[in-house]
Design a binder for these strands. Structure first.
Length: 739
DNA sequence: AAAGTACGGGG
DNA sequence: GTGTACGTACTTT
């Protein structure tokens, strides 16, 4: 039998089995098939289960089953259950439907999981796994041997080839208006395809055949480009050969909007390929946040096919990792359903429903301030205190006999007999992330550093999401009580840190969930010693039992007042410069996504000028220089020299255009586009230019960036106002409030 | 003044 | 196949 070594490129179901694409060490693209029989479990007496299974078999289903033992997540008990395998895999949904509809009181497990995930989990492989495969001459896989592991930090990839497609012109959603020719980037060079209709499609087909890319990168491919090209192909009645496996249709996932973090998110409908990847830079959170290297790192860890992972949230990723942990441990995977919270009294609610702790600094200019952060505080707490849906107020440890393990403030007990599923999953993430951070600091190769950085960032997102997911009632492994336990510990630890800081003769200026800003009492400007702060960090780590790190010592930092209550600072509005020259800015215009580039650029320039100051005295001296920069930009705007790309304001729609109650600029522009027949969705972002913000005729106030033409004027006054607003926080320290 | 609307955080 | 907070700032009416 042939044996081949290579990387697992993709898996999807087709016909009766799974199709597997390998990229071999000889750089060949190999299509194989596997007769995969997925597994699920039924709990119940054999007098009920046996007749059920035989009735399914008599209806023509191919099943195999046996009695085995698996662990129930919440009780920790090992239950005798029926393990059922279904062949072919594509019949699984039908089998499950029969069972759940007819015998709804029987408990079933490992049920609601997509087929491609199942394949990866059950076969213990993962995207881009390096493996050795033995196969039958007729392309049927007989045996897998995986030669690397998701735990590895120094894995190899096959040389992947790609092309990139986008519409020429402004870098905004081409769905919203005018569009140019198709732009193809190939082997580092850009080509403009000035042909149309059938010709365009044939040309693309030739390109795809000749270069046979593994990946098609696009901008706006999901929402516009691919459907657009398919439409042209359909009209001309010629096939568009996007797939590597051409007799199959593209895999489509419908568009949808959902609510997350108080905001509507729009996901464009997805178009995914067979034997090839389509990745849309404009429809991928993970690509945007962690880049290409981060995406591949997460694909390996989560075992989700790359095209799907690119289009999903990190929450789905963390769930998949938890599934992997559960499968390894022989834990039955519960059906995803709501878990009611325990009853809580009003008093408990007050104690429990708080998040992280926040202090407020007195607004002003401070010198020699150290910022000390708990490293990955929430995940570390979950790992260290074994906080997991099944361990907090667990069923196995009675409240009475685990008095040493009570959660602060809220008094929940935590299991002492079992390691939780969530902490177990987190361990790998925490470990791998700190490993990448170390590799990053050791590496001298800037390219390599970038790779480690991207992977480290990807893991950070997983860690952050993992905590959020504990509190999400519909997450498969979420439980609000576990979430509350984490925040309760976090408050206790921050309070403890505050006491230690103050007992050691430091002043705590500000604290925010997992960060502290401290100043040594009575120390002159240059008298700050890093050693003293390092010593404080050491003591804090030792006494709290959690890792902390010195983020840095600020040469100076400005905590900004609230605009509505000027005596109070906003916890998250500050800017400062560290002794090592690094800068940190939070909450200012440069950090906001809805601020026009020119305002950001001006503020950035002014900040950089001011950051050269060593102390308050020098800051005061440099402020006039900063003001000159401001004047230059104001002048530039007033002379009408700014171009639209510098003025564009991007905002996210929270409603359907017709549902807006107020005539905000966004509402006006969205209705305008909508009137032209362009479909907009809540969660989608829209780029606009302010043309005349006070015009009586509403449609004159702003224009969609895509549609604006060269001779339209912009609202100079309004843009100047925005610029002046960005100046205010920089001038604040000189208004007399500073220390 | 009140109500509606949008954004940030994590490194 | 998925995080329904929370506080701040700004706009519209």
């Amino acid at each position: 039998m042939p044996v081949v070594k290579g990387w697992l490129f993709d898996v999807y179901s087709s016909g009766d089995g799974m199709v597997i694409w390998l990229i071999t060490v000889e750089n060949q693209r190999l299509r194989l098939e596997d007769n995969f029989a997925p597994t699920f479990y039924i709990e119940g007496p054999s007098t009920r289960v046996m007749p059920l299974l035989s009735s399914l078999i008599s209806k023509g289903m191919t099943l195999s089953f046996r009695l085995t033992e698996k662990q129930e997540l919440f009780s920790g008990e090992w239950w005798p259950v029926w393990e059922v395998k279904v062949y072919p895999a594509t019949k699984l949904p039908r089998v499950l439907k029969q069972i759940t509809e007819k015998e709804s009181d029987l408990q079933v497990f490992n049920v609601d999981l997509p087929l491609s995930w199942r394949y990866f989990h059950e076969k213990k492989v993962f995207p881009l796994a390096f493996c050795q495969v033995e196969y039958h001459p007729r392309e049927q896989i007989l045996n897998w041997e995986v030669l690397d592991s998701p735990r590895d930090t120094d894995y190899q990839f096959p040389p992947l080839t790609s092309i990139e497609l986008k519409m020429e012109g402004k870098d905004v959603n081409p769905n919203h208006g005018k569009r140019g020719a198709l732009e193809v980037r190939l082997e580092g060079k850009e080509h403009l395809l000035e042909v149309e209709g059938k010709e365009l499609i044939s040309y693309l087909n030739v390109l795809l055949r000749r270069y046979d890319p593994d990946i098609i990168f696009t901008h706006w491919g999901d929402s516009f480009l691919l459907p657009h090209l398919m439409e042209i192909a359909g009209r001309g009645q010629i096939p568009l050969a996007l797939n590597r496996e051409n007799n199959l249709r593209l895999f489509h996932r419908r568009e949808h909007s959902y609510f997350s973090y108080g905001q509507v998110i729009y996901r464009a409908g997805a178009w995914m390929l067979r034997g090839r990847w389509h990745l849309d830079w404009e429809n991928s959170f993970i690509l945007a946040q962690a880049g290409w290297e981060g995406l591949l790192e997460l694909a390996r860890l989560t075992r989700i096919p790359v095209q799907q992972l690119a289009r999903t949230s990190t929450g789905t990723g963390i769930t998949s990792m938890q599934l992997a942990t559960a499968l390894e441990e022989g834990i039955l995977i519960p059906w995803r359903k709501k878990q009611p919270e325990d009853f809580k009294s009003a008093r408990d609610l007050i104690l429990v429903d708080k998040g992280g702790l926040v202090y407020r600094p007195v607004p002003g200019f401070y010198e020699g301030v150290a910022e000390i952060d708990f490293s990955s505080m929430f995940p570390t707490l979950m790992a260290q205190f074994n906080l997991s849906p099944e361990t907090v107020k667990c069923r196995c440890c009675a409240p009475g006999n685990s008095s040493g393990h009570r959660v602060p403030e809220i008094g929940y007990w935590v299991c002492r007999r079992r390691r939780g599923l969530v902490p177990k999953t987190l361990e790998l993430l925490l470990e791998k992330r700190s490993c990448y951070k170390q590799l990053m600091s050791k590496s001298s190769d800037p390219e390599q550093k970038k790779i480690y950085q991207a992977r480290q960032v990807a893991l950070k997102w997983m860690l952050v999401t993992c905590f959020g997911y504990l509190g999400y009632k519909n997450a498969r492994f979420g439980r609000i009580e576990a979430h509350e336990a984490v925040t309760a510990y976090s408050r206790e630890k921050l309070l403890q840190a505050k006491e230690i800081v103050e007992a050691r003769g430091f002043r705590m200026l500000h604290a925010l969930v997992d960060s502290l800003w401290v100043q040594k009492e009575g120390v002159s400007e240059q008298g700050v010693s890093e050693q003293e702060y390092q010593e404080l960090v050491r003591i804090l780590s030792q006494e709290t039992g959690l890792p902390l790190a010195l983020e840095g010592i600020y040469r100076w930092i400005v905590f900004l007042p609230s605009r509505s209550f000027s005596r109070l600072a906003v916890p998250n509005r500050y800017f400062g410069v560290f002794f090592n020259g690094e800068i940190k800015v939070r909450g200012l215009e440069v950090r906001r996504s809805d601020v026009p580039p020119i305002v950001k650029k001006a503020q950035q320039e002014m900040l950089e000028y001011l950051f050269a100051a060593n102390n308050f005295q020098e800051y005061r001296e440099r402020i006039s220089g900063a003001r000159q920069i401001l004047e230059q930009y104001l002048e530039y705007l007033k002379e009408g020299r700014a171009d639209f790309a510098e003025l564009v304001i991007t905002r996210t729609l929270s409603h359907q255009p017709q549902d807006y109650q107020k005539n905000s600029l966004l509402a006006i522009v969205s209705r305008e586009l909508s009137g032209r027949g362009i479909k907009l969705h809540p969660g989608e972002s829209l780029a606009l230019i302010i043309t005349d913000s006070r015009a009586r005729e509403k449609s004159d106030r702003a224009q969609a960036y895509v549609n604006i033409d060269g001779d339209r004027a912009y609202d100079q006054e309004k843009y100047c106002e925005l610029l002046l607003r960005a100046w205010e926080p920089l001038y604040f320290p000189l208004k007399g409030n500073s220390s």
